[in-house]
Design a protein around this nucleic acid. Structure first.
Lengths: 242, 242
DNA sequence: ATACTTGTAGTCAATTAAACCATAAGTATT
DNA sequence: AATACTTATGGTTTAATTGACTACAAGTAT
């Protein structure tokens, strides 16, 4: 009979003591937000285990009878208190050395949240979780730098093909906010005027008649996302190049 | 103590007897080829287990100390006898009901091979493996229809962003072969003349001076892929829309 | 010699992209 | 109350790209 290594799936790697060896499948999730022009990701501090105190992506484990997408959603709801978050699988990461205490394959996800109605759930204090600007993140635990990078690549593909970025914005937003979002995610500079024209032409946005308030300059119109046009565009496929 | 389900990784699901229950992580791979204008995928017939005789994607399992990409490459080499095949991970599939005999999470891959120098390896007879036109595939075992669909979506994204399709063609090919390849993969029709113009303009192809031989019409120029331009274009990013 | 087939090149109108410029509508300053 | 300042918004201009076509080239087959 061949060697039969075992995969346990009911315990989080971050809960392990240094001496414990485990074999498991986990989930790690990049939770992205966009606020005041800053594109950020949520990091958590590992409370136990061999690399206690270091920062990494929030993660969790998969129950025996649970779909992996469901597991990711459960993790996300526990962390944020929010349901129906935009969530996308990136890929599986399976370097046998990625986790030092045993063979752990992890499945990477990313989530897009609107930080307006968001509050880090009980179980985390400020010292245990923080938002960090995406392009300043480095030296994460295990292979989490790689997971973050792959998630970013995935997200960049996605926002060019579908109006995914809306999930990071509040219900109503200005065109400049939207433009800054694209600039941050894609790491490019775009012309304000050309962006407006191009985006408005595809009729994905609708005006509410509302305007910005409390700003010390001319108030911008507020837009929101037109779901019906989105459906139509999704079927025929579209492409955002800036 | 919580329930601790076990994941075994040293046995292929297709080798299991009906009565055996297992929990494992596997790999399933879409092996695509393109020959005589036909875009095909390799299917294998399951030799044992509850669904004996039905067709599915070739699959395998991950060794305890093995990177999952390495496992996919090993599987591919065993099947085809070829090394250094173009291989890309798609995503993990984890519906708890996807495999009827236990919890098996699988990681989907796709490979692109040039069927010119390809021969299905020993271990498969003609009755156990076959090439099927991609758009005619249906009713595969387990969730393999879904894995194939996701792989196709992934590949379509890829060929628009990078000159990936070359991996399906022989060293030297005509522009019309290339055009047919794109038509098949993307399931679109393109104008012959416009395709030429657009593709040649990006200087990704180089002429060899050679021409087609043995055809009963005007022989077309043969091109091959210019690696140095590819590097340059990959860095700045590019986009094929047809 | 002629038809037939695929390869290759070019035309032209319509659309789109990129780089700008100009003005509008407010707030802040003097 | 005039002026400066800031961001919003709407245009213009020119070049590049696309999409739909046409025409001819270079072979084979009849």
């Amino acid at each position: 009979m061949e060697k039969m290594p075992k995969y346990l799936v009911s315990k989080s790697p971050s809960e392990l003591k240094e001496s414990e060896v485990m074999d498991s499948i986990t989930i790690d999730c990049c939770i992205f937000s966009f606020e005041k022009g800053e594109f950020k990701v949520l990091l958590v501090q590992h409370g136990e285990g061999i690399r206690k105190g270091e920062w990494g992506l929030p993660g969790g484990w998969i129950e025996y009878d649970e779909d992996i997408d469901d597991a990711a959603n459960r993790l996300l709801e526990n962390l944020t208190g929010l349901k129906d978050i935009y969530l996308e699988q990136v890929k599986a990461f399976g370097n046998p050395k990625r986790f030092p205490l045993g063979r752990v394959i992890t499945i990477g996800y990313y989530a897009l949240i609107n930080s307006e109605n968001f509050d880090i759930k009980a179980g985390f204090t400020a010292s245990e979780a923080k938002w960090v600007e995406v392009n300043k993140v480095q030296n994460l635990i295990y292979d989490h730098d790689e997971i973050l990078n792959e998630s970013l690549l995935h997200l960049r593909e996605k926002v060019r093909r579908a109006p995914t970025g809306f999930n990071l914005l509040p219900e109503k937003f200005t065109l400049l906010q939207l433009m800054e979002l694209y600039q941050q995610i894609l790491n490019i500079e775009v012309d304000k005027s050309n962006f407006r024209r191009k985006f408005l032409k595809m009729k994905l946005l609708k005006e509410n008649g509302d305007k910005q308030e409390g700003v010390s300059h001319r108030a911008a119109k507020l837009y929101s996302f037109d779901e019906s046009t989105y459906q139509r565009l999704t079927e025929k496929g579209f492409n955002f190049e800036f």
